[in-house]
Design a protein around this nucleic acid. Structure first.
Lengths: 209, 209
DNA sequence: CCTAAAGTAGTGGTTTACCACTAATTTTTA
DNA sequence: TAAAAATTAGTGGTAAACCACTACTTTAGG
């Protein structure tokens, strides 16, 4: 067994750490380490790894975009996503694209090695915490379909976060203040909050803006 | 020159990366690497380094608390703060406590080595970006003293974010609603926002809650 | 094609937030 | 210790948000 691994992460410390950890494992070989999405795309045209460890938060190119691109152009490469955040929506998105693993950056050495081996052998790697959360999430979705805001609701919410009043929002969107008020109320219900403060908190925390 | 270095970071990847980078430098010696604030406090009682690389975001103990404690008990140890965020307020806070350096985790190897050398030789290390921001910040502070919220204001802000009305806040804090209203208004002025939405946005974005 | 959801607009009313002041006491800080 | 800031409480008023409805039109999905 000789697993060829490429690593992409913009943080040199993380990159070095991974190269060091994985490079010293019997049967694994780090063939490349990139610091940006651009470098990755150039490098991967030259040599393709078995496993690609891909950081979600690269400075230049979007993680999901990169993953999809590589998945399409090199279907044999298996991608393990590296992320600092365990936002369930994001995890599900990456898995849907076709990534085989999702590692949090606070994972320890054995976890990382385990993940690479599992994915190389055709499996899918998720931390136990994450897989549990995804299961719980699928339950929740039955009664509380989260974040299914309509186009108008998102627009109104965005303007609320930007400190605009119903009057101002109405003018910006060429609507009656009554209509804006209606959207506001349905936002309160959908997001299950009591007032403007709750709306803004949820919006900012979930990156809806 | 033989610089004794201790490292504290809860992320194994980061920890290993740092040990690897600094350990291979001529004249530097990593004498310990800790994964939590508790481990650090136990370990540092046994052996004191010249330089301590200290992660701000440890799972157990607060960065500022740890830094102050170590600074008081072992004044000879020079602390370089490691952080993922370049929040100016936080940087200034750590410098005020007496830390000699502030490194962002996206720093590259040479920067880290440079920082350690500089601080060991009695200097202070800040990334050029950070020092520029601090200078700009000091200009701004003349008319807009940012984020210097009083105890009561923070309490009120927290409760506003939690969707409470002035009436409810007054009951919780055993105050008159008028007083709460006053705090609310000064929050609006201090944070330079127009309404509750702005208050909550700033609070959440700056982690004031 | 039909139905559910979204989008639009309205009535009428209550509650809360926002604003501009005054004013006294306490605490902090230079 | 004197000045500044914080904490407390108030008056009186305007603007905005919140609530519960009705009702018509448009759009999207099975």
């Amino acid at each position: 067994m000789n697993i060829k691994i490429s690593i992409t992460d913009d943080h040199p410390i993380v990159r070095n750490g991974l190269v060091n950890v994985l490079g010293s494992v019997e049967g694994m070989q780090v063939i490349a380490a990139y610091g940006s999405g651009k470098e990755l795309l150039e490098g991967i045209a030259q040599q393709q790894p078995d496993i690609l460890l891909l950081d979600m938060q690269l400075p230049d190119l979007q993680g999901p975009y990169l993953a999809q691109l590589i998945q399409q152009q090199y279907p044999l490469i298996k991608i393990i996503v590296l992320s600092s955040f365990d936002v369930i929506v994001q995890v599900k998105k990456m898995l849907k694209i076709g990534c085989q693993g999702y590692l949090l950056k606070d994972a320890d050495d054995t976890t990382i090695i385990e993940a690479v081996k599992t994915v190389y052998n055709g499996g899918q790697y998720l931390s136990t915490r994450l897989s549990q959360e995804i299961i719980q999430d699928s339950f929740k979705n039955r009664k509380q379909q989260k974040l299914v805001l309509s186009r108008r609701e998102k627009e109104v919410l965005q303007l609320i976060v930007q400190e605009h009043t119903n009057q101002e929002i109405a003018e910006k969107l060429f609507l009656s203040p009554h209509t804006v008020e209606n959207h506001r109320i349905s936002l309160l219900h959908k997001l299950n909050v009591k007032n403007t403060a709750g709306l803004v908190r949820v919006a900012v925390e979930n990156g809806l803006v």
